[in-house]
C-alpha cells in the first residue's frame, strides 16, 4: 500500500499586521512507500505534525491531494474516509492516548469494535506480547507509565494490520530503553511490509529509517537514504 501527497499545502488564518494567514505546510509532493520506514525530522512548529495529520485524512489540505493507492482521501465524505482510515491507516498520535474507561485489551481491540467487528483475543494478546505489555491486559490507562501507554498506542494502531502506519513523536518524553523499544517495533512493522512514517526530532531514530526528510517552516526538503 502506498500513500502519496500531490502539491499538498495547509494554510491557517491568524491575525497579523502583514497577512491574515500563514502556511504551516507549503506545496509538497511526497510518497510513502510500502515496506519502508520514512522519517521526517524538524523542530517543533516546523509543520511536520500538520503534514502527518493531512496524510492521515484528519486535516483537509488547503490545496493538493492525498492518494491512498490512487483513492483521493479528501474527495470522500467524512463517513467513508473514516472507514478507510480505520481499515488502512494506523495512527499513533502524540501524547497519552488511551481511553480511560477501557482496559488495555479493550483499547487495543477498539478499532475493530468501532465498526461492529470483533478482534480475536489471541490477535490482540499477540500484539500486546509483541510490544511487551501483555501482563497489563486488564489494567486501565491511568495505571500505565508513559512508555507502556505509547506501546499500547502502537499495538492499537497495528491491530487491523494497516498498510500505512503514521507515528507522531512516538518516543517523545520516553527514556532511552523505551525509545529503543518503540523504534524497534516501528522497524518491525516496516519490515513486515507496512509503509511507516515516523515524525520525530529524536536523533536515534535515524538508525532505524530507510529515508529521512527534513521539514522547516512548512517546506519538506532532502531525502537521505
Amino acid at each position: 500500500m502506498e500513500l502519496r501527497a500531490e502539491g499538498v499545502s495547509k494554510r491557517f488564518f491568524r491575525n497579523s499586521k502583514n497577512t491574515n494567514y500563514f502556511y504551516a505546510v507549503k506545496a509538497t509532493d511526497f510518497v510513502l512507500p510500502a515496506g519502508k520506514l520514512t522519517e521526517i525530522t524538524g523542530r517543533s512548529g516546523s509543520g511536520k505534525s500538520t503534514f502527518l495529520n493531512i496524510l492521515s485524512g484528519l486535516l483537509e489540505p488547503t490545496e493538493g491531494k492525498v492518494l491512498l493507492d490512487g483513492t483521493d482521501l479528501y474527495a470522500l465524505a467524512d463517513g467513508p474516509r473514516s472507514v478507510l482510515r480505520n481499515r488502512s491507516i494506523g495512527v499513533i498520535p502524540q501524547g497519552q492516548t488511551g481511553l480511560h474507561s477501557l482496559t488495555v485489551l479493550e483499547n487495543v481491540k477498539l478499532p475493530y469494535a468501532l465498526y461492529g467487528e470483533t478482534a480475536a483475543d489471541e490477535t490482540a494478546m499477540a500484539l500486546l506480547e509483541q510490544v511487551g505489555i501483555a501482563e497489563l491486559r486488564d489494567a486501565y490507562p491511568n495505571e500505565l507509565s508513559g512508555g507502556e501507554m505509547r506501546r499500547l498506542a502502537i499495538a492499537r494502531a497495528l491491530i487491523r494490520k494497516p498498510g500505512i502506519l503514521l507515528a507522531d513523536e512516538p518516543t517523545g518524553d520516553l527514556d532511552d530503553a523505551n525509545t529503543q523499544t518503540v523504534l524497534r517495533l516501528l522497524r518491525q512493522a516496516a519490515d513486515a511490509g507496512t509503509a511507516v512514517l515516523l515524525v520525530t526530532h529524536e536523533r536515534e531514530a535515524a538508525a532505524y529509517a530507510d529515508c529521512i526528510y527534513h521539514m522547516e517552516s512548512g517546506v519538506l526538503t532532502g531525502e537521505t537514504v
Binding site: D78, P93, T97, L110, L114, Y115
Partner: peptide, 16 residues
C-alpha cells in the same frame, strides 16, 4: 475533546 479526538484517529466518523 481528547477522548473524541482519539476515536477520530482510530477511524470514528463525526456521526459516530
Amino acid at each position: 475533546k481528547k477522548e473524541f479526538a482519539i476515536l477520530r484517529v482510530m477511524g470514528a466518523s463525526q456521526k459516530m
